[in-house]
């Protein structure tokens, strides 16, 4: 029993995060002050949202490299909608953002499901297409803070019990998707379709369709994050969140999501994102150049995947009695 606990990926990661926080706080106690931790969490929320979506996609043996481009495109569209109709209530903005993101995710999903094109190729393509479309619709111009309506900018920053709405949305997403992944048929289908596609077919699960839903969820979360991103930073242009898709994949890998599919949890994605978020926020505090961040997250990915691989190594058959007793 103890062995099961110790090898559990999530607990290992919680340990790593606690250790990291202890190290930082030993020199800068202010870092673990509740207000600062709330700030770090809030800052990491977009990564958490996207990592949850990406985790689901990776579970089904796919990958979604278009999430950051989806985020940027949706963000640009809602910014332009806001500029054109400043009075439009935020609810409609949210509906547009989630709706458009979902649609973009469905495009990926359809190409993977109906045409059976490898997901890495599909999302590589849509990633560049989405970025290009942003340029076309915006004519390469920025939507700046002063053009956005106050309500548009205020929503993600509104403070509830010391945590901005952005952070609360991430918490809500974690709760909702924890339930979806463990307590719904679709949630278990994601695991089944990725863990053993052949068997899933026999169990009455349409693997392609399950992958389609994974991309749809990933797209919906990316769209939602698109609005939250542009309103929080109060700016929208072609290159926002450039390269962010790799941070998202990194968060998943660090969170113990297996790139081979079938293994991963919402908690893992959350912890992986937090690990990267804490490092990013801690670097300036401990007076290390922010330029170190990229190399550190790269190193963390490699260490994480090496540890995961060690834990998942296939064991050979134990035939000898002696060996059987010893184990």
């Amino acid at each position: 029993m103890l062995k099961r606990l110790v090898t559990s990926r999530e607990i290992l990661l919680v340990g790593a995060i606690v250790l990291l926080l202890m190290l930082i706080s030993s020199r800068f106690p202010g870092f673990i002050a509740p207000a600062n931790l709330a700030n770090v969490f809030n800052d990491t929320s977009p990564l958490i949202l996207l990592a949850i979506g990406q985790m689901i996609v990776i579970l089904t043996k796919c990958i979604d490299l278009s999430v950051a481009a989806n985020l940027a495109l949706t963000g640009m569209v809602v910014s332009m909608v806001n500029v054109a109709a400043p009075g439009l209530p935020i609810v409609f903005i949210l509906v547009i953002a989630i709706g458009l993101g979902t649609l973009l995710g469905m495009i990926n999903g359809i190409l993977v499901w109906k045409l059976a094109i490898p997901p890495i190729v599909v999302t590589l393509g849509t990633m560049t297409i989405f970025r290009g479309i942003i340029f076309v619709i915006s004519d390469g111009k920025w939507v700046n803070s002063h053009e956005m309506s106050p309500a548009f900018k205020a929503f993600p920053r509104a403070d509830i019990l010391g945590l901005p709405v952005l952070g609360w949305i991430a918490i809500l997403a974690v709760i909702i998707f924890s339930v979806v992944m463990t307590r719904t048929t679709l949630g278990r289908a994601f695991y089944a379709a990725g863990g053993n596609p052949h068997a899933a077919t026999y169990a009455g699960i349409n693997v392609g369709k399950t992958q389609f839903w994974a991309f749809t969820i990933s797209g919906a979360l990316a769209g939602l994050t698109g609005y939250l991103w542009v309103s929080r930073f109060a700016v929208s242009y072609v290159d926002i969140a450039g390269g962010f898709e790799l941070d998202v994949v990194a968060a998943c890998v660090i969170g113990g999501v297996s790139i081979m599919g079938g293994i991963g949890t919402v908690a893992g994605a959350l912890l992986g994102a937090l690990f990267l978020g804490i490092i990013k926020n801690a670097l300036p505090v401990v007076d290390i150049s922010p330029f170190w961040q990229l190399a550190i997250s790269g190193g963390a990915i490699i260490v994480a995947v090496a540890l995961n691989a060690q834990a998942n190594r296939e064991k050979g058959r134990i035939i000898l009695k002696r060996a059987e007793q010893a184990s």
């Binding site: 089944a192 053993n196 009455g204």
Partner: peptide, 30 residues
């Protein structure tokens, strides 16, 4: 029941048995 047991390593035994027709509780959740 197939030649090579086609089941799901990462799911629990109970989930393997009830995949696709699990008993439902509140809100239609498993």
């Amino acid at each position: 029941i197939h030649q090579e047991t086609v089941l799901f390593d990462e799911l629990s035994v109970a989930e393997n048995i009830f995949l696709g027709h699990a008993p439902r509780g509140a809100f239609g959740l498993i």
